[in-house]
Design a protein around this nucleic acid. Structure first.
Lengths: 341, 341
DNA sequence: TATTAACACGAAACCGTTTGCGTAACCTCC
DNA sequence: GGAGGTTACGCAAACGGTTTCGTGTTAATA
């Protein structure tokens, strides 16, 4: 479809028989331009609904007012809430958001970043894909930062890259959750988690261990179930519950928690009388499960807002730090108690 | 943060002592340029990792390779799946996706569209906000199409705008769902829906009516519950179930369905023995509810792909139709039977 | 030897804006 | 009446590419 001619400065200039620069200045209400001319130009521009071309301005300013967001998955409650926070803050500050989904794939992450890094965006907000964390390869991030494009990492971060970061206090909140279970009289507390290369899972596991230790409980490796993040295999979970004496479970996400609850219920256990459950991510599932699930609210929207704020501030700061100083913001998670505990 | 100088054609040209045009052509492997020069330029470009500036290309081509997506909500299973489809297809065809969330607000929808329409995108894919449907005001869409920017509407569409559309067969699938309930022996079938200004809800309601009528059942207005789309008020639902004899419920979304199931369960009804439930949107809730929910799979991802395809084809078609001919693609929904029926 | 075609490259326009600087025209004041 | 100061505007470069057309050099042909 051929675009119909949008009106440009040139058209206005030709029509009013003045120069392009005069039109430009007149529309900006420049002192340089005479009263009459300004009024004439502004009236004409309004009449024909002139809007400056963003692309041309981007080229001139070397600023696109676009933020690139790269997340592993969009059909995922936590990421969507973070995204909402980003979008909200960005929009309120005149920025648009370009989203790319890495689909947990290293290659897609690389490709997406390269695509966007060629002028399309002023900076990145991202959460690392599973594969990237597993490979432990962050050269694509390094290249981007070396080009002077700022990155803000959230949730799934890495120490290998120097940039602003936004995370939750995974260790502490897991510690608190397990401590709460113990205070409630639970002794055989299971942990259902993903592989360790997930930074966050690792920290949550450490919080779990520490809480057990601090309360005089042994760390029983048998009570730790590691599941692939992709597909929940109910048989494995059923097996786990069949072969272990468990009176409480900490799960690193909602789906794991719900699946475990179902398995326990199938086995005839009563929740929370016989067994308690705590999950991560205060999503729709936790709220509507039967029984409702006690869970860790990660304040995703807040994370997104903070991430966007950090990025925009850095993009707009004209200062060129000799020794750049990056901050890591920690969003305090909160335990929401419901019927599963 | 000051951007470090990215390498441009000009740099390469100066360095190799050739003209900018030669460099440009050499990198495009133009026949015009000699073998030696080409190799020299290409090697140099590779060495310094030259990548053309997207913005400059956009300005020249008047094509951004960006798609603007405007949806009412991002923290919503259906919209995220559609988005995933859009993103997937778009990315595979070299397009990026800029997302704006209207938040069900007319004003935000207008502002977002105006912002993006000034050169940032080649076309829109959108689903109308609740407020827009309620106000029945589509001038912002008209303005955009009159500028020659194509729009593809999905799910929440309007007849007032001539453009490509992607919808599901809401009427038929609601008809089928209710018919199934009737065949299962249900007689007092409730409909839990939103206000009528939602195009889709209206069509679903019509399917519901038709199925009742075709099977000799009376349409009982008492058995229709209209809820606000924003917040589910459990008290209202409890009230509804307390005061009506109901043996089956068709809900226009997942949340309504789950909320209703809980209310029925509270009342002591057994699902599906005493009462059956069917919802719309095959999301995470339907899958993990107890009992699992029979639901209408809308194939959101497919919708997204089709929408993206329609848009991209229109954007890339050079033809300027005298009488533009628009298509409305209907994605066939599918009933997924689970334990609630 | 003069004509011409092929080759390899550069100049310049263009996309739409912004902005520093130059300058014509008028005014003012001594 | 010339110096100096405003005022109001235009020119041109710049952002980073693409592309059309022109041209100098060489080699093939008449």
């Amino acid at each position: 479809m051929a675009l119909k001619q949008k009106i440009t400065l040139k058209h206005i200039a030709r029509e009013l028989d003045v120069s392009i620069s005069t039109v430009s200045k007149a529309l900006k209400n420049s002192e340089e331009i005479g009263r009459d001319t300004k009024e004439k130009v502004q009236a004409f521009a309004k009449l024909y609904n002139y809007k400056p071309n963003n692309i041309a301005i981007s080229l001139k300013n070397k600023r696109t007012k676009n933020i690139g967001v790269i997340i592993p998955d969009i059909v995922h409650h936590f990421f969507t809430t973070v995204f909402r926070g980003i979008e909200k803050y960005a929009n309120a500050h005149g920025y648009n958001v370009i989203v790319c989904v890495s689909d947990e794939s290293f290659d897609k992450e690389v490709i997406n970043m390269e695509l966007l890094a060629n002028g399309s965006i002023d900076g990145f907000i991202m959460s690392l894909s599973a594969e990237t964390q597993q490979k432990d390869d962050f050269n694509h991030l390094k290249e981007v930062t070396e080009q002077g494009i700022p990155i803000v990492l959230f949730d799934r971060v890495t120490d290998d890259i120097e940039c602003d970061k936004v995370i939750i206090n995974d260790f502490e909140i897991a510690y608190d959750a397990v401590t709460m279970l113990i205070k409630g009289g639970r002794k055989r507390i299971a942990l259902v988690t993903t592989e360790n290369y997930f930074n966050v899972s690792k920290k949550r596991a450490e919080g779990y261990w520490k809480a057990l230790k601090d309360n005089g409980l042994d760390l029983n490796e048998d009570l730790i179930l590691k599941l692939p993040y992709t597909e929940v295999n109910d048989a494995v979970i059923d097996d786990f519950f069949a072969n272990h004496q468990i009176d409480a479970v900490l799960c690193v996400n909602e789906i794991f928690a719900i699946s475990c609850m179902r398995s326990a219920q199938k086995k005839g256990l009563r929740i929370p009388e016989d067994i308690s459950f705590i999950g991560f991510t205060n999503g729709i599932l936790s709220k509507y499960a039967t029984p409702t699930l006690t869970t860790v609210e990660q304040h995703g929207e807040k994370m997104g807002e903070v991430a966007a704020q950090l990025l925009i501030e850095r993009v707009e700061s004209e200062v060129d730090y000799d020794e750049e100083t990056y901050t890591t913001e920690i969003i305090k998670a909160r335990l929401i108690e419901r019927d599963s505990t």
